[in-house]
Design a protein around this nucleic acid. Sequence first.
DNA 1: GAAGAAATATTTGTATACTTAGTAATTTCA
DNA 2: TGAAATTACTAAGTATACAAATATTTCTTC
Lengths: 230, 230
Amino acid sequence: MTVTEKMEPIRVANETLASQIRNCLADDITSGAIAPGTQIDEQEVAERFGASRTPVREALRELASSGLVTIEPRRGARVVELTLDRIGEMFEVMAEIEAMCVRIATERMTTLERYQLHHLHNISHKHVLDENIDEYDATNKQFHTTIYNGTHSSFLIELASNLRQRIAPFRRAQFRGIQRLLISYEEHAAILNSIFAKDSDTAAKLMRAHMLVAGAVYTRYAYEHPSRLE
Amino acid sequence: MTVTEKMEPIRVANETLASQIRNCLADDITSGAIAPGTQIDEQEVAERFGASRTPVREALRELASSGLVTIEPRRGARVVELTLDRIGEMFEVMAEIEAMCVRIATERMTTLERYQLHHLHNISHKHVLDENIDEYDATNKQFHTTIYNGTHSSFLIELASNLRQRIAPFRRAQFRGIQRLLISYEEHAAILNSIFAKDSDTAAKLMRAHMLVAGAVYTRYAYEHPSRLE
DNA sequence: GAAGAAATATTTGTATACTTAGTAATTTCA
DNA sequence: TGAAATTACTAAGTATACAAATATTTCTTC
């Protein structure tokens, strides 16, 4: 064995080109960089990534399956554009799934996990005081993800995460206005209390309400600002 | 204009080659024709359908997204092979989703839809008497689908249908034994009663139990017959 | 004969080329 | 001038070709 024994090839990316493109496009869509309804030209995306159409097509197919774009045969792909009804349905289901998650998580979380959640809640308090919407949004996401993880059900974690991603493009109006930030924080506090009290049914009920409020906020906003419907 | 004016081109299929292959493979997998764990060779599938690898690859990507196959970069695709734990998690989530569906459906179904459900239930009774497992299974599926549709939430319908499809390859031991058929039938009857009584909470509770029993039946069977784990 | 290394074969990932369908533009005829 | 039809063009679907990585086999060495 020499000193120069074969090193790990520093595999630049354990990912395939197609999957990188998929992740990148997914980010663009969920962040709103590519607006709902936008037609996606395969050639254009290919050039942007310096690749051929093949991996782009595969990426688009995967995005279609996960619900971020729609593909019509011979007519290409476009970022999903949902009706208000449909978005309402998604929030409704999301509310139920989140309720399920918190109910199960309340029964299964470890002490450590509960305190991690509590810690996140404390952090978000600072963001409320600072009126830092972006940071609050990020911490909010972590808060929910931590609850998903608390179910210890990999399948449920995946399902909930996927749904959250699908709704993402339509949540951007969420925290418009500082008062909404505070309300969200207080709702979290109530949920957290139930979790620590190991009252799973109450936690679930509160979570369902919390999510339905978010849905209502969105749909009302979208209704009042139809031109900015994204 | 002559008599031979251009006829509708009898568009053989409004589908693309890739989507046909996808549907076909999905059937093969859910029906068990291709067993879990089977490695899928792109070239082989391409030849089977008389096509090139390109549409086959796209089909496999979509199947991966919907959870029927797993793809590892550079190592190809294989039919999902799940651990018992994972299957248990899926049944657990499925039970919750189905409970959600029946709760919402109980509140929203039209009179016509309720009677369609009742009709299906009557049909399944015949299959119980005939001990016709395959037919019962088909009617059972329709029964559940009718409940999904009763939610009038296209999003929820899609979600539930997708989950059902994902579990399909692992449900085949479901109705082994006539007594299980009868039990299933009677559980349906109780659910149906609650729906007609518009008691959505009870319907949900019964449905959850109904699905959890199915999951327990499977996992017990799989545990007792590990070699036939499919 | 077994273990490891080199060579070969197979298979996936990507690029390019070609075919076909859909759309837009232009032309022709009423 | 307006509508229908033809043509041209664009973009998606599919096939083929090539490159890169993994799997397999063979060969060498102990």
